[in-house]
Amino acid sequence: MTGFTFDTPGSIRVEWGGAARLGALMADWFAARSVLIVTDAHLHRSGVLDPAKASLAAHGFAVAVFDAVVADPPEALIGACVAQGRAAGADVVLGLGGGSSMDVAKLVAVMLAGEQPLSELYGIGRVTGPRLPLVQVPTTAGTGSEVTNITILTTGGTTKMGIVSDRLYADRVLLDAALTVGLPPQQTAATGIDAMVHAIEAYTGRHRKNPLSDIFAREALRLLARHLPTACRDGTDRAAREGMLLGAAMAGQAFSNSPVAAVHALAYPLGGHFHLPHGLTNALMLGPVLRHNMAAAAPLYAELADVVGAPGSGPVDQRAQAFVAAMEDLMDRSGAPRRLRDVGVPEDSLPRLARDAMLQTRLLQNNPVPVDEAAALALYRAAF
């Protein structure tokens, strides 16, 4: 066996309704008593945070809320959040929301505790300073950001860059699927497919794939494939919501150790240029990239066919095709858009998207089959 490392957050707690007693949990976890909640305005206005805020206050926490997080968070947002955290004297950071809120919370916890400027953090393993205690509570079942050591920011106008460091792993993660009950069907579909892409790319990556990441990826994909149609059809189904949230977290643990690849590399420019939700952009590119990778990944796709319950039997190539067909059927049943033209992406933008995708070298080098600019353009055209 080739040696490998598998990293993960300090602790994960699964508890339906756990956010309503977050104060008791955090009082037991930390001596710190001044918490900065990082979230978005919609969640704050909707009242989703109210039980957690009340519980924190009841257990002696001073609570400040930064609610200006937006999708594809820009660099300036980090500075604003750090400034509010410093003004509040925050000594613990709580990311409560979707992937963007949790990504911001990771960096803010680092920057509140240390002196490194943001510009020095981009890349792999470049965070050297300390960070404040960090708790992550997701409200969507998709990004897996609660359990990963990765933050993605929008730099400049449209380009996305990543910060990867083990210091970004949370101390504590709370998976409370009750927080996901209000998620609309289309968002449930997009975030769920995002999580499935994480599992698939972790399972088929060229670098750092290992026996533990494989276990997490397979079980994540099994849970997500089983529960996504129900969660989209009936968002109040507790078993479906719990299965989706656990599956998304397990997929996050898989890809945090065995990184994602070309689906994400091609999805990022779509989000950067057209401000489409990350889960949706992954869903749009999944089918074309699966077919592109077939030459190298067919044996692994054949194994995943059994995981998602694809019908039929036969040789490896046949089972691999059955897996791709099963994934496309699952996306169709979830109601997620399937074509770039359906979400307002113009055909004349495809060459620019292909050029921008080439900047995602960290991801492209992990793809089972090489993707150059010509191949990227062909994949965007296949998705169009």
Rank of each mutant, 00 (worst) to 15 (best):
M1F: 11
G3P: 10
D7I: 13
P9Q: 01
P9G: 06
I12T: 15
E15A: 08
G17Y: 04
G18D: 07
G23S: 07
A24C: 10
L25T: 08
D28I: 00
D28H: 02
V38C: 13
D40W: 03
H42Q: 11
L43R: 13
A52R: 10
A52V: 09
K53S: 05
A54N: 08
L56S: 11
A64V: 10
V65Q: 05
V65C: 11
F66L: 10
A71D: 13
E75W: 08
A76E: 11
L77N: 00
A80H: 06
C81Q: 01
V82C: 12
G85S: 07
G85T: 04
G89K: 11
G89N: 00
S100T: 04
M102S: 05
M102P: 04
G125P: 07
P133H: 07
V135R: 02
A141D: 06
A141Q: 07
G142T: 13
I152Y: 04
L153E: 11
T158R: 08
I163P: 07
I163A: 08
V164T: 03
S165Q: 01
R167N: 05
R172M: 13
L174Y: 00
A178P: 01
A178S: 15
G182T: 15
P185N: 05
T191E: 13
G192N: 03
H198G: 10
Y203V: 10
T204R: 02
L212D: 02
L212I: 14
E219H: 01
A220N: 04
R226C: 06
A231P: 00
C232Q: 03
T236Q: 11
T236I: 05
D237Q: 09
A240T: 11
E242R: 14
L245V: 13
L246M: 12
M250G: 10
N257I: 12
H264M: 11
H264W: 03
P269C: 07
P269H: 03
F274R: 14
F274T: 07
L276Y: 01
L276P: 04
P277K: 11
L280E: 01
N282A: 01
N282L: 12
A283D: 09
L284C: 05
G287D: 10
V289K: 03
A295D: 12
A297Q: 10
P299F: 06
P299T: 03
L300V: 04
Y301R: 06
A302V: 12
A305F: 02
V307C: 06
G309Q: 05
S313R: 12
G314W: 01
P315C: 06
V316L: 13
Q321H: 12
V324K: 09
E328I: 08
D332C: 07
A336Y: 01
G344T: 10
P346A: 13
E347D: 14
L350F: 06
R352H: 09
R355V: 13
A357D: 02
Q360F: 12
Q360N: 14
L363D: 01
N366D: 14
P368V: 09
V371L: 03
A375G: 06
L377F: 06
R381T: 05
F384M: 14
